[in-house]
Design a protein around this nucleic acid. Sequence first.
DNA 1: TTATCATATAACACCCGATTATACGGTTTG
DNA 2: CAAACCGTATAATCGGGTGTTATATGATAA
Lengths: 296, 296
Amino acid sequence: MINARQLEVLTTVIEVGTTLRAAELLGVSQPAVSNMIRHTEDLIGITLFERAKGRLVPTKEARLIAQEAQHLFMQQKRVSRIVREIREGSRGSLTIAASPSLGLGLVPRVIGEFATGAPQLRVSLELGSIDVICDMLASGQADIGFALTQPRHPAVSHEAVGAGEMVCVCPPGHPFARMRRIGVADLNQVPHISYSAATPLGQMIDRVFAEKGLERRYAFEVRHTATALEMVAAGLGVALVDSFGLIGRRADNLERVAVEPSMPIRINAMMPRLFPTSSLAISFLDRFRTVTGAAG
Amino acid sequence: MINARQLEVLTTVIEVGTTLRAAELLGVSQPAVSNMIRHTEDLIGITLFERAKGRLVPTKEARLIAQEAQHLFMQQKRVSRIVREIREGSRGSLTIAASPSLGLGLVPRVIGEFATGAPQLRVSLELGSIDVICDMLASGQADIGFALTQPRHPAVSHEAVGAGEMVCVCPPGHPFARMRRIGVADLNQVPHISYSAATPLGQMIDRVFAEKGLERRYAFEVRHTATALEMVAAGLGVALVDSFGLIGRRADNLERVAVEPSMPIRINAMMPRLFPTSSLAISFLDRFRTVTGAAG
DNA sequence: TTATCATATAACACCCGATTATACGGTTTG
DNA sequence: CAAACCGTATAATCGGGTGTTATATGATAA
């Protein structure tokens, strides 16, 4: 019927009064404006201007149309702004699913970096087991997932986005703090915090102990490294944690000591195979890699 | 940036899933859709679809844009509807200024006819003296004016839109009702309703009496024919009224009798010279003419 | 393998919306 | 009154966005 360009020309002419100044404002020639108005009048069958003494006088109808067109212009600007924000990565929604080990420490920190300066960005973070994460990804409820274990799900792809190892943390002044490295067996000699045998970390540590013919003995049992860290910081004992959990954490109330034997861990990023990965998720992944790469 | 057509194609493809069905819905060929999408992606620099196994899978970004575009489409439809309503004369605002003689009888009746079936039409009617009417027109407060007297104002044009004459009305069973015509002098013999000497009608009637060397004598004085009509209908007496006031009025409680000598009157429509007359005003004028022409 | 469906590419056509150049009517001005 | 100026309209033309048909390519189903 009548298109946005025609409405734009119409309202501009009404605003500034002459085709000449309207043409200047619109950055086109005067005949373009003149022709457009005539064409629009023919198209919609409404007289938009009276030609009085060589001047254009807008009719009431033209004024009404121009007024209503303002709402259309608002929406045009809105869509343009949203498109621009998407391109600049500052708009969109990103849903992240993570295992508690990562979701309570490293991931929130990366989100914090990622979201600064992008107020229109909505990030939501869901915690869950590896199976829950896979289900969320497969069903489109989450865009990207992070866990220390590898997913086994046909609709979920994965890739390593960070390599690290288990390290020992202890309060400042603890005997361990003066050692360059400790053996896992040493842990049994001091009160320490460890993980439920039902968790991946607990199983991994148990495996290492088992190889040495030992049995893990600990004072406090937790499920997540973030909890263990807080307990160590509170002075309750030492703990084995993944090196990622220490990234960005101020070191004034924690000492870090290497562990023998090395227990390598890797962070797996997971993405759904059934849906295209959003560009927002991809750029989040990039940011994630720079963080873990800098201090894995 | 991104235009409405591109958004339309985008949302259609997302809705129906394939370029082929989108092309059908949009009434264009499949390559047109395919090219448009590619072109849009290049234009805005955002990947809108992933090409997976020969199918197009919309990205999150595309979904978001399509969703926001709905508001734009709403406004487009709204503007189109308004344009159509204007063309069909069923939308707009029309302000009419009329003298009380017309504004209390004939004009409201024409407005009633004019506005039926056009719910979006706003008509306002202002009553006033001929000078007030002229001022309203000259200042753009009114679109069109109606009066029995001719305007004398440089910025107001006028034209006759109905010719009639003064007629005598009397209650059914009144002695006058059996006469084919009466003389003005006969009025002095019966109780009758007439007009203040300060009104145009009063002056006109006085002039006729004066030509016959008579003086007008009446029982009730009013200012408007509409009032006079009501009083006659109430049985208070007879009256001279303009023939327009009887148009459309049911005749069961009023008898109409011609008057000698004839007192021709005309209705003047007035329009501002400084502003273009709205098409709504012009079509109202047309309707007015058909009403007065049918039974002047 | 063949048939079918969906997308992409190539080559071409059309028309909208732009251009420049110029004419024309009105108002202002020396 | 003629000249200058302002604003609009017309003519002829151009370019690109958006369309077309024909066809290739790739994935899936029979």
